Computed example of a mutant assay.
Amino acid sequence: MMKCSFCGFEFDEKAPGSASCKGCPMSGHCGRIRCPRCGFEMVKPSGLLKRLLGRGKSE
């Protein structure tokens, strides 16, 4: 799960509509994710950051 840093909406980053610009030649390779609610684009968090954030929630 990912939370939009603009509107606060939580969504699955692999859900349809969360991929960045479909018409762009860098589509899917730029590391950005688009919020399905507001359209705000943000950088996809790294695997290390996800693991660190995930540990904080389970403790």
Rank of each mutant, 00 (worst) to 15 (best):
M26D: 01
R51W: 01
C35R: 01
G23A: 15
S18Q: 07
G28K: 05
S58L: 03
P36L: 07
S18V: 01
L53G: 04
K50W: 04
P25I: 15
P45K: 13
F40I: 05
V43A: 13
G8F: 02
L48A: 13
C38R: 09
M2A: 00
M42G: 10
S5T: 14
R34A: 12
S58P: 07
E10T: 10
M42N: 00
L52P: 03
S58T: 14
G28Q: 04
G47K: 02
P25N: 14
I33G: 05
F11N: 07
H29W: 14
G54E: 14
G39K: 00
F40H: 12
S18I: 01
G8K: 02
K44Q: 07
P36E: 09
F40P: 03
F11H: 02
C4W: 01
P16T: 06
P16K: 06
K22N: 02
C4T: 09
K14V: 03
E41P: 04
A15E: 04
P25Q: 12
K44H: 01
R37D: 00
R34W: 08
E10I: 12
G8E: 06
A15H: 04
A19W: 06
C38W: 08
S27I: 06
K57M: 00
E41R: 12
F9S: 07
K14T: 14
K22Q: 06
E41T: 07
M26W: 11
L52I: 15
K22P: 01
A15L: 02
L53R: 00
C7L: 13
A19Q: 07
P45G: 13
K22L: 11
P36W: 05
A19G: 14
I33T: 04
M2W: 01
R32E: 00
L48K: 08
M1Y: 06
K22C: 13
S46I: 12
R51M: 07
R32S: 01
G39P: 04
P36R: 09
S58M: 12
C4P: 05
E41Q: 08
M1F: 12
K14A: 13
G47F: 11
H29Y: 15
G47P: 03
K50M: 11
P16L: 11
G8S: 08
S27Q: 09
S5H: 00
M26Q: 14
L53Y: 10
G31F: 03
F11D: 06
G23M: 11
R55W: 04
S27M: 09
K57H: 09
G54D: 14
L48C: 10
G28P: 01
S58A: 04
K22I: 14
S46Q: 06
K22A: 15
P16C: 07
R55P: 05
K50N: 02
